[in-house]
Design a protein around this nucleic acid. Structure first.
Lengths: 389, 389
DNA sequence: TGAAAAGATGCAAACGATTGCATTATTGGG
DNA sequence: CCCAATAATGCAATCGTTTGCATCTTTTCA
């Protein structure tokens, strides 16, 4: 008995009650229709338009969606009324009905230590690029910078239908959470590295090995032989750059001189690691390849603080080409990533995944930008166009 | 007749039809209840939990919201079931019912020329701070970087109930759109300047005049007399900094030497303006107060390119204290804004506005950070802590 | 002219939650 | 032992859309 507490639902009486209640409801509703002349404060809904146009809500809905079922004249009349009443559709209602959110979540996933927001200019550019592309598809962008577990992600973003898909910037040291997300069937696109071959989620990335190779080969061409690598190779994107670096050195028969120092994604970190190194063993290298421009700038500052010259004593190449790079002293030679194209591709892939299609990973070429910090371009001036005028 | 097409709705027959249809619906529904053992793919809803717990949906809803009406035992049992089924509430449905979105829109509003995303590191830090605070209130953050008219804003964000309020970063050259938004009754908080006295929307800002004064007075104390101002005073926040600059000069009886050059928010712009100036009239100044660190760095680079020394020939002070500032050459003296507190306050104000309370504007003090570019601190080392160890 | 086809519109169920009110079960007091 | 007060739960309306199906209207063609 206890296990069937709503057995009484099945009796006849409640059904009659239902019918009576429904009648009562209809009546009160129709009274409402009469007494409601213009409830101004509340926003206008389809039923308001329907009443004004003398048609049903279904017709309004179809007319506003340009459904060919509706007569052209009716459609235009309804659209006209909607415009004049400044009608805006209620997205919550539409999304509920259509079982979607028309929103993509963008998550920053670079192990930001201690809850501190991670603010490389690269990030904002990437987010901006994604936002622009999503706007073209009329999708909204839900932003999160909280680093959480995959359970949380899935539950918070997808389970609650806050987002139709997730774009993650940064593959992170441990991509378990990402694999898990993917396994749950959520549309997922990641900006990351290309290291792991058995990927089961869609990755868009720069060709990090190519970038690492470009940077290193360039330094070698300048006659540098003792090049150290600054970056945390536990991040797949960084690891790719490191691979390129090692490959270039190996080709030159210099494998033994490869040296990697683990630093996180900040200028402070770059500064400290080089300051440490100089204090410990003096100047034992003649070039640095840094995994990001921020790191490179920190490292250069540390060298300068100890009286060493860049590029004379040590040549430096960075990665990203952030906006300030040409204006640093010395202007930073760096490997440029195609952020605009990256954002575009990620959104494209996402739209495919949402449309139940599959999306292939994609790798973007990098471009070496030679300025002065590598020693190859001492006469470099920012804004060449200006000087040409 | 034609104007009353749904007159027939009022006749008796359709009501009977309604009743019949409803009966039919009830029956099919109950059949459905029987044949639906585990429709796995679709996410679990309250009715699933209700069925499993042998209670009604209302009880489930109340139990999950910790409504005291529900017996404690029942509540815990229901919550247990919800957890075990990995239930996540459908936010679209909840938002529809509660007539809200539980989402705040954040808009970047710094006249980004030509649709190019504007990427000052300051922005990302600010967005991060806001995101963190919103997350504490369990609000979502909808990000837009499209600069549009107020009509668009209101219609897109508020009219469609995509957002419950708007936070705008940057007051912009023309705040008409903002006033309009406010007039429409939308909760609005702006990060901007303090110039206009007749504000009708809630502004949170740094004390820009204070910052301008700190920077200028510091340069004056270093013996500089011909200080130029770099920035576009049409932006209220910049105008405040300019006011502080002029006030400090006036107190010194140097009003006549005030000179402002209009540059937009980028390093390129700072570089070009100084390059132009030098080309046109040589070195006619001995100090620069720049409206942002990015501008300052561009300006310094222009000076260095022409062989001038900073701070020896020209002292420079910036504004913002972006993360790279200590690592620039020379390390940048600048006016720090309290971004964390700013984000916190804006979210606080927003919550007040949403709660139908009013929110007062608020001004945050600025802090001068003395490094080397002003000439006052030649021995400055980034990361003092490191050297102390 | 009449039946079938096509065209236009309406009805009400559905999406998944919340909540005022009604109802039932439990307890306490006289 | 009965009635009132209280605690616990259920019913059905509601938010604002979309859409399968039914219905009504008009056209078309034999």
């Amino acid at each position: 008995m206890k296990s069937l507490p709503n057995l009484r639902h099945e009796l006849a009486a409640p059904i009659l009650q239902t019918l009576v209640a429904r009648l009562r409801w209809r009546i009160s509703r129709e009274q409402g229709e009469v007494r409601m002349p213009k409830d101004s404060s509340s926003p206008v809904s389809m039923s308001d338009i329907a009443r004004l146009a003398g048609v049903s809500e279904s017709t309004v809905s179809r007319a506003l969606n340009n459904n060919p079922l509706i007569n052209e004249k009716t459609r235009e009349r309804i659209q006209q009324i909607a415009r004049s009443m400044n009608y805006k559709i209620n997205e919550s209602a539409r999304n509920l009905r259509l079982k979607r959110s028309h929103t993509i979540s963008v998550v920053i996933n670079t192990g930001s230590a201690g809850g501190q927001t991670f603010s490389d200019p690269f990030m904002l550019d990437m987010i901006g690029a994604i936002a622009d592309r999503l706007a073209e598809h009329r999708y909204d962008l839900l932003f999160s910078n909280r680093i959480v577990t995959s359970d949380d992600w899935h539950a918070y973003l997808m389970g609650s239908r806050r987002a139709d898909g997730v774009i993650v910037i940064g593959q992170g040291i441990n991509d378990g959470p990402l694999r898990e997300l993917q396994r749950q069937g959520d549309p997922l696109v990641v900006w990351g590295g290309t290291a792991k071959p058995d990927l089961d989620y869609c990755i868009v990335s720069s060709d990090n090995p190519m970038g690492g190779r470009q940077a290193t080969e360039h330094l070698l061409k300048q006659g540098r032989r003792k090049i150290i690598f600054l970056g945390d190779t536990e991040h797949p994107e960084i690891h790719g750059r490191y691979e390129g670096y090692r490959a270039a050195l190996a080709e030159e028969g210099l494998d033994i001189s490869a040296r990697q120092i683990k630093v996180s994604f900040s200028s402070e970190s770059g500064y400290q690691s080089i300051a440490d190194l100089l204090k410990a063993e003096g100047l034992t290298f003649d070039a640095i390849f840094a995994a990001s421009d921020s790191i490179a700038m920190g490292a250069i500052k540390a060298l300068q603080s100890q009286g060493y010259k860049v590029p004379d004593d040590v040549a430096v190449v960075g990665f990203d080409d952030i906006p300030i790079a040409p204006f640093y002293t010395p202007p930073l030679t760096t490997v440029r990533q195609n952020i605009q194209r990256g954002g575009e591709l990620m959104v494209e892939k996402m739209m495919q995944l949402i449309g139940d299609k599959t999306a292939e990973p994609e790798v973007l070429p990098t471009e070496l930008v030679v300025r002065s910090s590598c020693g190859a371009n001492p006469g470099y001036q920012p804004i060449q166009e200006y000087n040409q005028q």
